[in-house]
């Protein structure tokens, strides 16, 4: 009974063989976030994860996709059935997005990446294919390996394939911008804004949902500023700050040259890196033990440390 659980997918088995069980190794995606976690040890072999959509079941709102697939390719396929995922659209691969664990800049509309990874298959430090999670949208069977692997920067296992939850694309998506409008007041007024971006001067808002609901929200906007409809903005670039939603209020006096803040979320895109305190000693200890348990020979993405910017 148990044996059938081991995958006989030749692509995955080949990938596992490539990773092997010895020698430093790192998975290379599209290098859109390559510098995260610090410099990679030069001795590491670079490998690409397998790519391709394995199975897409729109009626179940789940998709099985290999890690090397680009998010753009995945979303193009899903869009044909009116769906998308929470993965950020900024030129990278599915595996890279999951390994990094950052959300799209339209997080309220797209959802949280960490909740979208239902199952993960990865190659372990010992070269074995390991699975965590499951193919259903709800699952508490065993420990939450998908959440551990998501955002682990490939330091605990080489991500090979994931099952992602998909979401319906809303009927209407429109963007509006105004100078001087209070984004925090708007965040309280609007029920489900798709995104509220603020650069200290202008506020750019995405409204999404049923057409009538968007119209109702547009009427609300009028009370808060001279909003004009604009093209969808590109994903913000620069250094990523993680702040609390409340801290964003103090940004204009925080000494940043320029920023784009995701109001209600707490992410700030800025020109300089965020100064961050180290992890507490007790949390650091668990991190070290985790790394030692999953990668006792420190061969997975060596040099990279989760949390280093």
């Amino acid at each position: 009974m148990t044996a059938v659980l081991y995958t006989d997918d030749a692509v995955l088995l080949d990938f596992a063989a490539d990773v092997g069980s010895e020698g430093a190794v790192a998975i290379e995606g599209a290098r859109t976030r390559w510098g995260l976690g610090g410099p990679l040890e030069e001795s590491a072999r670079l490998l690409a994860a397998p790519s391709g959509i394995v199975e897409y079941v729109p009626e179940e709102m789940i998709v099985t996709v290999r890690a090397g697939t680009t998010v753009a390719d995945l979303h193009a396929e899903l869009a044909e059935r009116g769906q998308w995922t929470a993965l950020p659209e900024r030129g990278g691969t599915v595996g890279g997005a999951v390994a990094v664990g950052q959300n799209d800049f339209r997080k309220p509309a797209r959802g949280e990446l960490r909740s979208a990874v239902l199952q993960v298959r990865y190659v372990s430090s010992e070269g074995k294919i390991v699975s965590g999670g499951g193919p259903t949208v709800k699952n508490v069977s065993g420990f939450d390996i998908p959440r551990l692997i998501t955002g682990s920067l490939g330091t605990l296992g080489c991500i090979a394939e994931v099952i992602l939850r998909t979401n319906p694309i809303p009927a209407v998506e429109r963007w509006f911008r105004a100078d001087g409008a209070d984004p925090f007041a708007l965040q309280r007024v609007l029920l489900d804004p798709g995104a509220i971006l603020w650069d200290g001067t202008s506020t750019t808002i995405q409204l999404a949902g049923h057409g009538v609901d968007v119209e109702a929200d547009i009427a609300l906007l009028a009370d808060h500023g001279q909003f004009a409809e604009v093209e969808a903005p590109a994903a913000p670039t620069g250094h990523r700050w993680s702040m609390t939603p409340a801290e964003l209020r103090n940004l204009p006096t925080a000494g940043l040259d320029a920023f784009i803040a995701e109001v209600g979320v707490g992410i700030v895109h800025a020109s300089s890196p965020q100064p961050k305190p180290p992890l507490s000693a007790s949390v650091q200890l668990v991190h070290e033990r985790m790394k030692a348990e999953f990668d006792p020979t420190n061969r997975l993405n060596p040099g990279r440390v989760v949390g280093v910017r």
Binding site: G101, Q102, N103, R114, F143, D144, I145, R147, L148, T150, G151, S152, L156, R240, S242, M243, T244, P245, A246, E247, E262, V265, G266, I267, K276, L279, V283, V286, H287, M290, V306, G307
Partner: peptide
């Protein structure tokens, strides 16, 4: 409370 806390997602596990 910040948007993307550092480190492994120990809260999540």
């Amino acid at each position: 409370l910040d948007a993307e806390p550092d480190g492994y997602d120990l809260r999540g596990v």
